[in-house]
């Protein structure tokens, strides 16, 4: 080994590291920071700063359409994430307790939808509902959301299960717990952080979704992303900035919650 390799592990010694880092963070976060700043701008013209105010937030909260859209978003996200989490939990537990032929393939198939371009299942589901003659609306959106939420809920639960000592369930049955009791007394409580983490993740994915909602929505199923898209077409007002900022705040809180719940508590 030559002396030159001594500092390779320390990124501070790389030329231009600081600049590259600064550029990266500016590239990713500057637009968001500007958007949040402008949501407090008193001026109606989006790009010209005059003075600080909460006016646009007030306006957003008084706008019935926004309230309705937010209500739809929360309803869809709640129903979709809860249902998807129940299905994902059942799938994950089954995958962990049993060895069967083609298990790896099934495990892959459950997670696959994450990598499929969203437009594909969206169009496919649209055609499916069209061929059945189902009227598009909240119901069809929720059904489609459940489908794409399942893998997002499944992965954290599965990860949590992999980290769980199989002897714990054995210990429970050894101590006179029937398989059902062992599940509710030992498996479920230990899995709960993973389940909640998966549910929160699914909730955010559903809340932010545009493509699927756009294709499968109908009258009365306008969600916040769809509403904002409509507003932008007619010109961006600081009101859009205000709603976007609020959605960002909600997303960040939920992601933090998900990470907090999913952290490994068994390690000291």
């Amino acid at each position: 080994m030559s002396n030159g390799t001594k500092h390779v592990g320390n990124a501070r010694h790389w030329p231009g590291m600081l600049l590259a880092t600064a550029f990266f963070f500016a590239y990713v976060y500057l637009p968001i920071v500007i958007l949040i700043a402008l949501s407090f701008n008193e001026n109606r013209t989006v790009t010209v700063w005059t003075s600080f105010s909460f006016d646009w937030y007030k306006m957003a909260f008084q706008n019935r359409d926004i309230i309705n859209a937010a209500g739809n978003s929360l309803l869809i996200a709640t129903v979709a994430s809860t249902t998807a989490t129940v299905i994902a939990t059942l799938a994950a537990v089954r995958m962990s307790v049993d060895n069967f032929r083609g298990k790896t393939v099934f495990s892959g198939l459950i997670a696959l939808p994450i990598t499929v371009p969203e437009i594909v299942p969206a169009v496919a589901t649209l055609m499916f509902f069209a061929s059945l003659g189902v009227t598009l609306g909240l119901g069809t959106v929720i059904i489609a959301h459940i489908a794409f939420c399942i893998p997002f809920a499944y992965l954290p639960i599965r990860a949590r299960l992999e980290g769980m000592d199989p002897r714990l369930v054995e210990a429970a049955t050894d101590l006179y717990a029937s398989p059902v009791k062992a599940f509710f007394k030992v498996t479920l409580p230990l899995l709960l952080p993973g389940i909640l983490s998966g549910m929160v993740l699914a909730f955010i994915i559903s809340l932010d979704d545009f493509v699927t909602t756009f294709f499968l929505g109908g009258a009365g199923s306008t969600t916040l992303p769809i509403y904002i898209f409509g507003l932008v077409k007619t010109g961006v007002t600081p009101e859009v900035n205000a709603i976007s900022s609020l959605m960002l705040l909600l997303s960040i809180s939920l992601v933090s919650l998900s990470l907090f719940l999913g952290r490994d508590q068994s390690r000291k």
Partner: peptide, 20 residues
């Protein structure tokens, strides 16, 4: 008899205590 009906208890190698 399944394990939960046997009047036999086990001390596991890694203890397998319930962490919750």
């Amino acid at each position: 008899l399944p394990p939960f009906k046997r009047p036999v208890n086990t001390v596991f190698q890694n203890y397998a205590l319930f962490p919750h």
